[in-house]
Design a binder for these strands. Structure first.
Lengths: 225, 225
DNA sequence: CGACAGTATGTTGTTGACAATCTATGAAAG
DNA sequence: CTTTCATAGATTGTCAACAACATACTGTCG
């Protein structure tokens, strides 16, 4: 019931969410795959209750799609999904930056610098997973500093898809970790200056560059149900 | 099981969501009140399963707060919540407007005009509920035209709280329905011109004015457990 | 009299089995 | 070959009972 290494003290639903999210991320569960509640429950050694709850959460994250009386299916991400996730993220991240820049605590700055240092150290050749982890960690600090519960919730709802896209990007553009460090360092500099307008502009620029690279990746342009 | 007038053919969870949401909106369930799954299940004549699901949905909408092993409590909305809902709404509505203005179909415009006409007709003395309904309906069209599933989901997650705030506003500023018609008419005009930048600016203005009025309302400034 | 530990109570969290409902598949009829 | 219908499979909804947990209460000790 607690296979050593995922979530020791959380609800079973959260545990199930973590497992499924991981399996989707690492490709064990492939896009379009049919997830049966009974199967999942048996495989994870929990009952259907937590599984249902977990699937509902994953649906709100866009990771799976639930069709009534049909079941849950791993989402097939199309070019439209890339666009949606990106535009939504840009919209909320600008707000996060505006707020964070006037709320950044010393602890937040320290944390940002810690992450930046890690980015720099791994600039050479680094596993895409690690680059994604650091990238997300940086922006997590932003959302934390923004002190906005609903904003954090929206971020959480697209976070794993952002992670997926970042991963794809890093695999296709192996030089990105270097660029990443520079860009995030710029962001940190602007953010620490406390000017909301400047922060907004900097984030807009950051997002635009990010999207340009993603748009060039090949993804299914339509769903094939 | 189907008390005539709420949700005939939906899942039981959706039905329960509707009932609780209504009761919160009309004040039958007061902020801070403790919602017991067993009680709700008995009162609505459903089992605890759908009730749990409904409470989870309501939590994602910010209507209730769930604390582990403590239960669900009707949210106590503070000044900070007003600010959060407003800033988040402003952020996503700008995006919605940018997209909608280049995607508005004839049907969308017709629908907007229908709503505007209703607003004008009821400008005199109108029930606050009706004014809120029309206000939301107008913006629903926007989000629909934006053609952005994730954006719609975020909107859905704050929609009922927006409704609550609009209601409070309309009760405290009885002249608002008139202003509302004018402002929305302006929005419609700009949106139909297909200029994303102009649309963005117009919505920003719309939101700013809306917030100014809300900020003057008296709401608890802090939570008292 | 106040602080603390242990217990009692109530609520949520979880489970497994069953009934009801719906979708999709494939066979039979026109 | 198309349409209709029946069946199989899956999910949703239901239920009763137990486990885990948080809080409140109680009694003891300082």
């Amino acid at each position: 019931m607690n296979p050593l290494g995922t979530a020791p003290r959380a609800t079973l639903a959260e545990y199930v969410v973590g497992v499924i999210r991981d399996e989707i991320a690492r490709g064990e569960l492939r896009p379009g795959e049919h997830l049966r509640e009974t199967e999942l429950a048996a495989a994870l050694d929990v009952s259907r209750g937590p599984v249902r709850e977990a699937l509902a959460i994953l649906e709100s994250e866009g990771q799976v799609e639930i069709r009534r009386h049909r079941g849950a299916f791993v989402s097939v991400l199309t070019q439209k999904d890339v666009e949606e996730v990106h535009t939504l993220r840009a919209a909320i991240e600008v707000l996060a930056a505006e707020r964070a820049t006037v709320r950044l605590s010393k602890a937040h700055l320290t944390e940002l610098d810690r992450i930046l240092a890690a980015m720099k150290n791994t600039s050479g050749a680094v596993a895409p997973e690690e680059a994604v982890r650091l990238d997300l960690a940086f922006h997590d600090v932003l959302y934390d500093a923004a002190d906005h519960a609903r904003l954090r919730r929206v971020w959480a709802s697209i976070r794993s898809q952002v992670a997926f896209f970042l991963h794809v990007r890093n695999v296709n553009f192996p030089d990105f970790p270097t660029v990443g460090h520079v860009e995030h360092l710029e962001l940190r500099t602007v953010l620490s200056q406390g000017d909301p307008v400047a922060a907004r502009v900097a984030v807009e620029k950051h997002m635009t560059g990010s999207f340009a690279r993603l748009s060039r990746l090949e993804l299914p342009s339509d769903v094939a149900g």
